[in-house]
């Protein structure tokens, strides 16, 4: 029997809104230790992994592992119907066939909303994603997620040249990180320097650079990650010309969300 319950409806709303932009379906795996979600986009250049430990839920009961593929757009639609203070219960019975029930309970309105989702896709074995080693990356940038969102917003408002998928070039050099996008009639560049000030010790921008690196990414992937990054105060970006970039935000001590994004080849 599976029956996790949580009150962080806004949290799941944000996750699903961010993910459903890019990924059609996701593989959900509930185990005794918590929830692991994985998805890969249709062009197979971006992958997302979300881990939410059992302690993140207000109540967590899962006496045997359960894997399911679910459609993210449908889930995002259902969550849009929920109030931010609803209590969510996820339920799959022992003799579960191919559906899972999400119940949204509004204590204030005395209203209960129920959605059954059919399993989609293979529901099978999760992807084999190795634990990434920071030491393998040429540069690691840590910055407040609000700052990262601001940069993505500027780039996406400017960088749509109309005739092809907008891209962003991220370069790390001399303890600074530069984001560059080309628009219809010009270019937009944001340069962030390393900062760690006494008055804002919790909001530093830290740049660890072994060697200079410059990579091209589709802006749509960055935008999706920037939406997901609202889950955390800080984002970490691992860059290498040999490996998929890893964009990560840690969710307190309760888990993380990671995007693995393969850069374009010049």
């Amino acid at each position: 029997m599976l029956e996790p319950r949580l009150v962080q409806t806004t949290f799941f709303k944000n996750v699903l809104e961010a993910l459903s932009d890019l990924f059609i379906e996701a593989h959900f795996e509930f185990s005794r230790t918590g929830l692991e979600l994985q998805a890969i986009d249709t062009s197979r250049v971006a992958l997302v992994a979300l881990v939410l430990r059992a302690e993140a839920f207000n109540h967590y009961l899962c006496d045997r592992g359960l894997s399911m593929g679910l459609n993210l757009a449908d889930m995002a639609k259902a969550f849009r119907c929920a109030n931010n203070d609803d209590i969510i219960t996820i339920k799959a019975e022992e003799d579960w066939t191919d559906t899972v029930t999400f119940t949204f309970e509004s204590p204030e309105d005395g209203e209960i909303l129920e959605f059954d989702f059919d399993f989609v896709g293979s529901n099978g074995v999760p992807l084999e994603i190795p634990e990434y080693q920071e030491s393998e990356y040429q540069a690691i940038v840590r910055m407040p997620s609000a700052k990262f969102m601001r940069i993505c917003k500027k780039l996406s408002s400017f960088g749509d040249s109309g005739d092809r998928d907008p891209v962003v070039i991220i370069s790390v050099y001399k303890e600074r990180v530069r984001s560059f996008a080309r628009g219809k009639t010009g270019t937009s560049t944001t340069v962030c320097l390393q900062t760690q000030t006494v008055d804002k010790p919790k909001e530093p921008t830290l740049i660890e650079m072994k060697e200079e690196v410059s990579l091209i990414f589709d802006l749509k992937y960055m935008n999706s990650f920037s939406k997901a990054s609202t889950l955390s105060d800080q984002v970490t970006i691992n860059l290498s010309s040999e490996l998929p970039a890893v964009f990560e935000c840690k969710i307190a001590e309760l888990g993380y969300i990671r995007y693995y994004i393969s850069p374009r080849k010049e």
Binding site: I40, L47, V125, P244, P263, R264, K265
Partner: peptide
């Protein structure tokens, strides 16, 4: 732009 590298190049999938 040249084709983006696909994740299969890095990780093994079914």
């Amino acid at each position: 732009w040249k084709t983006q590298l696909r994740m299969e190049a890095f990780y093994s999938f079914n």
